[in-house]
């Protein structure tokens, strides 16, 4: 698996798209920091970018990589290699190269800006950690979609749909149901609702840093325990890890059964 990972990773970090992705983040970081000169605002804008764009790029890139390397995968399948290690290797290769573009692209301008001397370093690290988690989650979901759909067009369609669903539609439905059931105690429901969507989960994690003052305005005891203590942070991270593990397990399961 490590060998596959190594070669996928090297293949990808030399691909044009990795550079585009890297350059995009670099540019974003530079524009936010040096043209705006306001670190707090930059962190807030970055958060919006990360929770929307990272999942989109992760899904599209994951699906694209899978379909593009289909024949190569077949070549690998004929080698004395375990199926799970082929797919895990490729998955990790994609996820890691994307994460690296993200971390370096945003990290470099921030380091030049003097991040290490700033107290925003924790907010910023949290952003990068969340971004990395989202990359791993959505690349895994993309591989799942691609593994289940041999038709490229369909695969891309589902990928975009998945992103739309989790990034926007889910929150819409979530909001409507909260308003609809407002007469009932909702804090448990709303926290569970958040856990079930990795984008919301990441958003909450960042909210814990950026908007804790607002979050603590709510009365519910469970809310208070969740946001007021490190409990929320720990649970969120555990859930994010589960969100990585589950799709990865499905990749392994699905790949074992699949015909090529």
């Amino acid at each position: 698996m490590l060998k596959i990972l190594k070669y996928s990773f090297f293949d990808l970090i030399r691909s044009r798209w990795s550079y585009v992705y890297f350059a995009f983040y670099l540019l974003l970081g530079v524009v936010l920091l040096f043209l705006n000169n306001d670190l707090s605002k930059a962190v807030i804008t970055l958060m919006n970018v990360i929770i929307v764009l990272v999942p989109l790029i992760g899904t599209i890139f994951g699906v694209m990589y899978y379909y593009n390397s289909k024949e190569f995968t077949e070549l690998l399948l004929a080698q004395p290699l375990k199926r799970s290690s082929i797919f895990l290797g490729q998955y990790l290769g994609v996820a890691m190269s994307l994460s690296m573009s993200l971390i370096l692209g945003l990290g470099i301008p921030f380091v030049f800006y003097g991040l290490f001397k700033s107290n925003a370093i924790w907010d910023f690290s949290l952003l990068l950690i969340t971004g990395t988690f989202l990359t791993f989650i959505f690349t895994a979901l993309a591989f799942n979609i691609a593994l289940s759909n041999d038709n490229k067009i369909k695969g891309f369609g589902y990928a975009i749909l998945l992103w739309l669903l989790l990034a926007i539609i889910y929150d819409g439905v979530f909001l409507m149901s909260l308003i609809f059931f407002e007469d009932y105690p909702l804090d448990k429901l709303s926290l569970i609702g958040t856990m079930l969507n990795p984008i919301d989960l990441s958003r909450t994690l960042i909210l814990l840093k950026l908007d804790i003052s607002a979050l603590l305005g709510y009365t519910g005891a469970i809310f208070k325990q969740f946001f007021g203590t490190s409990f929320g942070l720990i649970i969120s991270f555990i859930m994010l890890i589960i969100w990585v593990i589950l799709p990865v397990m499905r990749i392994m399961f699905k790949s074992r059964k699949k015909d090529f």
């Binding site: 996928s8 090297f10 030399r14 024949e71 190569f72």
Partner: peptide
């Protein structure tokens, strides 16, 4: 040893 029908390799290697 297997020779697949269509050969497509990672394009950046």
């Amino acid at each position: 040893d297997y020779l697949p029908q269509i050969a497509n390799f990672p394009s950046n290697l």
